[in-house]
């Protein structure tokens, strides 16, 4: 029933390398859990603050496994018609009218609730894809608890029940990644079906490696200074602490500006790359800006 899965990674290190090649440097725990998810075919729930690369992990996983990424972005009020499936009622109606003469009611009814009239939404298309995909269910904490219940059947048995049609089982088993910003507690039932990975801001060395990977031309000293400063900024109580993506943006900005050091002036000019609230800007300028060396007269 489930298509044989081709070329699964053989070791944690192999998957880790694959992810690195896809532009994602996993920490040891990340590589391990991703490996388990792929090998065991269990969904993995990734939680952590915004901007630590939860979504990126799914993308990198898709690209290193050579699979298509199916993404379901969650939001308040998301329902099954948008996530699972929907009947293509226009087509159904046309069918009814086309057959209005002659055909008996039973034939028409059997007809119009066939797969032909089904519009696959992300979840259905993920499990009915001919080759296995990576299914990303992004920001699951944004939905209502009712929607979580909808997911349970899919996550544990990889099947979807459509009342008019019966059960649709997966033709290929997707790797499922759910992400959550931890803005609300997810239900036990959902957690029970998933492997759990907590992603936090990376350690200094790890982030340095990430920045180097994405901005290799940046001088080593600047890169190190950059991650140190970002670490300092994250320590503050901000509305929105800088994410990894913003560190990388900042590195690229510095590269463009040709900065050779992060001094007070450079920082003041470019800090809006990593800090994006007016009140946050003030706090950061007052607490971090002054700690840096004043611009050397060049």
């Amino acid at each position: 029933m489930i298509a044989p899965v081709d070329e699964l990674p053989e070791s944690i290190a192999e998957l880790g390398d694959g992810l690195s090649r896809a532009g994602y440097l996993p920490g040891p725990a990340t590589a391990l859990v991703a490996y388990l998810a792929v090998r065991l075919g269990k969904p993995v729930l990734v939680e952590g603050p915004a901007g630590v690369g939860k979504t990126e992990l799914a993308k990198a996983l898709a690209s290193c496994l050579g699979r298509e990424l199916v993404r379901l972005q969650c939001y308040e009020g998301l329902d099954e018609a948008k996530a699972l499936y929907e009947w293509n009622y226009r087509k159904q109606l046309l069918r009814i009218q086309a057959e209005a003469q002659g055909a008996g009611w039973n034939e028409v009814q059997d007809d119009i609730f066939g797969e032909e009239f089904l519009l696959a939404r992300p979840l259905l298309s993920a499990i009915s894809a001919t080759s296995p995909v990576v299914l990303l269910i992004d920001e699951i904490d944004k939905t209502d608890q009712e929607f979580e219940a909808l997911l349970l059947e899919l996550l544990s048995d990889f099947q979807i029940t459509i009342p008019e049609l019966g059960r649709i089982s997966a033709t290929s088993q997707p790797v499922v990644v759910l992400t959550s910003n931890n803005s609300r507690e997810l239900t036990e039932a959902l957690k029970r079906r998933c492997l759990y990975l907590w992603l936090d801001y990376p350690t200094l060395e790890h982030e340095l490696a990430i920045v180097r990977m994405h901005a290799p031309e940046l001088a080593d000293t600047v890169a190190r200074k950059l991650v140190e400063v970002v670490g300092m900024v994250r320590e503050l109580d901000l509305k929105k602490p800088p994410s990894i993506a913003e560190s990388i943006d900042w590195a690229r900005a510095l590269l463009l500006l040709g900065a050779r050091d992060i001094d007070e002036e450079t920082f003041a000019q470019t800090m809006s790359v990593i800090v994006k609230h007016r009140t946050d800007l003030e706090i950061v300028a007052a607490r971090v800006g002054v700690a840096l060396a004043p611009a050397s007269g060049e």
Partner: peptide, 15 residues
């Protein structure tokens, strides 16, 4: 670390 991580991923589901 792999042993511990594998257990943690399946048994401990919040920070």
């Amino acid at each position: 670390s792999a042993f511990q991580g594998a257990l943690a991923a399946t048994l401990a589901k919040s920070p």
